[in-house]
Nucleic acid binder design. Structure first.
Lengths: 105, 105
DNA sequence: ATTGTATATCGCAAATATACGATAATAAAA
DNA sequence: TTTTATTATCGTATATTTGCGATATACAAT
């Protein structure tokens, strides 16, 4: 890539791209669905649901955390993850706003 | 990555991830917006709108084409790109369906 | 204090993505 | 037919992503 992409595109496009990037791996989609399906905020059961190692799942969780789509809280020796509803809503509305612009051709 | 991700996740998650991946770069978001903003389906003017070289823009167009989000038609010596409305709609509804599932915590 | 459980991080390898210039390919125009 | 314009592709360099095992860390339980 040679140099950073930033500075070249506007903030909105960058933000949207970041959200999309967080959603750009099936494992992360699956994680979000697991979190949504279980009423309680699940931690390591996610690992059991996915065909990936614990360390790899942890990485995907980190990516989702960095995108703010999920929140992790310490619960004794384990971690309790849950969806970040407000950011998810924002993500949804940003994506919808993009698709609203897409009508031409 | 060592080996292909496929076979491990369900089709829906893979499809969603592919759509998200197509949207995961600000240049590609910008391209979609340019196509949406101009009534006519523009070709190389896209290059002028972006802070990237012609070859790089061409690569991003290819990525959007492979995700089926845009369509390219030959128009004499130039290419006429336009949004693929139906696939965009499908993408939108798939993303909305994901976000509909996201309400818990 | 030691052990066990759960999770994050490190270190590595391989694959993919991003970017560019140079070149090829295509078609119109001269 | 040669030239010009437009776009795609190739080759290359670098960065990032993905994956895993191994290890570190944190806490609970014994």
């Amino acid at each position: 890539m040679a140099y950073s992409k930033s500075e070249f595109f506007n903030r909105e496009d960058e933000q949207l791209a970041d959200i999309a990037k967080a959603l750009s791996h099936p494992a992360r989609i699956a994680i979000l669905k697991v979190l949504a399906a279980r009423q309680t905020c699940i931690c390591g059961e996610i690992v059991d649901e996915l065909p990936l190692s614990q360390s790899t799942v942890s990485q995907h969780l980190k990516a989702l955390k960095q995108a703010n789509l999920i929140i992790g809280e310490i619960d004794g020796p384990r971690m309790c993850y849950c969806l970040n509803e407000s950011i998810c809503k924002k993500a949804r509305s940003m994506l919808n706003s993009l698709f609203n612009k897409i009508k031409c051709c």
